[in-house]
Simulated scan of single mutants.
Amino acid sequence: MSDERSYPTGIGTSTTDRIQLLGLDLADEVLGKVSFGELAYWLATKRRPTPGQLRVFEAALVSLADHGYTPTAIAARMTYYSAPESIQGAIASGLLGGGSRFLGVTEDTGQFLAASIAALGDTSGYSEDDWDAVARDVLEKAKSEGRKVPGLGHPVHKQGDPRTPVMFQIAREAEVFGPHLSLFEAIGRVHPEVLGRTLPLNGAGVAGASLADAGLPLGLLRGFALLARTAGLIGHLAEEQQHPVGPAIYAEVDRNATYVPPAP
Rank of each mutant, 00 (worst) to 15 (best):
I187P: 06
P84N: 11
D137W: 01
E128M: 09
H191K: 02
R222T: 12
H154T: 04
H243G: 04
G146S: 10
I11Q: 02
P84D: 13
P155L: 06
L218C: 09
P150M: 04
L21D: 05
T258V: 14
L218P: 08
D3I: 06
A90G: 09
Q159Y: 11
T123G: 08
W42Q: 08
Q111M: 14
L139F: 04
G10M: 07
Q241Y: 00
G12H: 10
R163C: 12
G89F: 03
R163P: 11
F102L: 15
Q241N: 02
S14V: 12
R189G: 11
R147W: 00
G52C: 13
L218E: 13
Q159F: 11
G68N: 01
G89P: 02
G98W: 01
P51R: 04
D122G: 12
Y80N: 08
D3F: 07
A119R: 14
D137G: 15
A207V: 08
S210C: 12
A263P: 06
Y126N: 05
E128V: 15
E107A: 12
E107K: 06
E193D: 15
R222M: 10
V176D: 04
R255A: 10
E38C: 06
Y69V: 14
A186W: 03
G10I: 06
A60Y: 01
L199F: 02
A186M: 07
A114W: 07
R55V: 02
E140W: 00
E239M: 05
A142S: 14
A204H: 11
V138P: 06
Q242F: 08
G223E: 04
G215H: 01
D28Q: 15
L31M: 15
D254G: 02
D66N: 11
S2Q: 07
A214D: 08
S182T: 08
G52W: 11
A27I: 11
V245E: 07
A238W: 03
A44V: 03
D28T: 14
V134H: 09
G37R: 04
E140L: 12
F177G: 10
W131A: 11
S86N: 13
P244E: 03
A40D: 00
P200R: 13
G235K: 01
F57D: 09
P192W: 09
E175V: 02
S93F: 01
T106L: 04
L21N: 05
D254I: 14
P262N: 10
P247K: 01
K33I: 03
N202L: 09
G32H: 03
A225E: 07
I117M: 05
F224L: 03
V30G: 07
D28R: 15
P84F: 09
A27K: 15
T50E: 10
L181N: 07
T13Y: 09
G125H: 00
L237N: 03
T50M: 01
S35Q: 06
L120G: 06
G196K: 08
A65K: 07
D122N: 15
L237T: 00
I91W: 01
D137K: 14
P244K: 02
Q241G: 12
R163W: 06
D3H: 09
